[in-house]
Amino acid sequence: MTAQGGGRAPRAEGPGRRIALDPESVGKDLAALVLTVVELLRQLMERQALRRIDAGDLSEDRIEELGRTLMALEERMDELREHFGLSPEDLNIDLGPLGPLLSPD
């Protein structure tokens, strides 16, 4: 809501003040955001699996299954990044003073 009432945001005035929306870049940006979240979750799952392995909580069969699953997920992520023309760096959001979101693999 604006102070002007009516519930509409004010429009930019004058030539050249329009927002350029490119459907292709919006799709790529959305894909990058979704893949960033998936990559973050993949890294967290991998770290948790390593902790469980180190703690001795998993059977040999379960370790093998987890390894195959994580490798398949990483391969699929590579395919999706390639499909959308994204590099691993494109998914690593800079959090300013906190540093990058994703850890290097």
Rank of each mutant, 00 (worst) to 15 (best):
M45C: 15
L70G: 03
H83F: 15
I93A: 10
D78E: 13
T36A: 08
R11F: 08
L33W: 08
L98A: 02
E65N: 09
S103P: 02
G5R: 11
R62L: 07
G6H: 03
D29G: 11
L73Q: 13
A12D: 14
D57R: 05
Q43G: 10
E89I: 05
D22P: 00
L95I: 03
P100F: 09
G85A: 09
G67P: 01
G67F: 01
P97W: 01
P100W: 00
E64Q: 11
S87T: 10
D22E: 12
L80Y: 05
G7D: 05
L102W: 01
E39G: 00
T36N: 04
Q48S: 13
I53A: 08
I93V: 14
G14M: 13
M1Q: 08
F84C: 01
M1C: 03
D94Y: 03
R18Y: 01
A72T: 10
L41R: 13
E89F: 07
G5T: 10
L73C: 14
A32L: 01
L50F: 01
L70C: 04
E75W: 03
D105P: 08
L44E: 12
R47N: 13
Q43C: 13
L33C: 11
A12E: 14
A9I: 14
L35R: 00
E46M: 12
L66M: 06
R51I: 05
S87N: 06
R18E: 11
R76N: 10
L30R: 14
E24H: 09
L40T: 14
M1H: 12
L98P: 00
E82H: 11
P15E: 07
A72C: 05
G96D: 04
E60C: 03
N92E: 06
S59V: 05
G14A: 07
D78L: 06
K28Q: 12
L98E: 13
V26P: 00
L98I: 00
L33V: 12
E39A: 15
R52D: 10
G14Q: 07
L58P: 02
A31W: 02
R17T: 13
L40S: 11
R62Q: 05
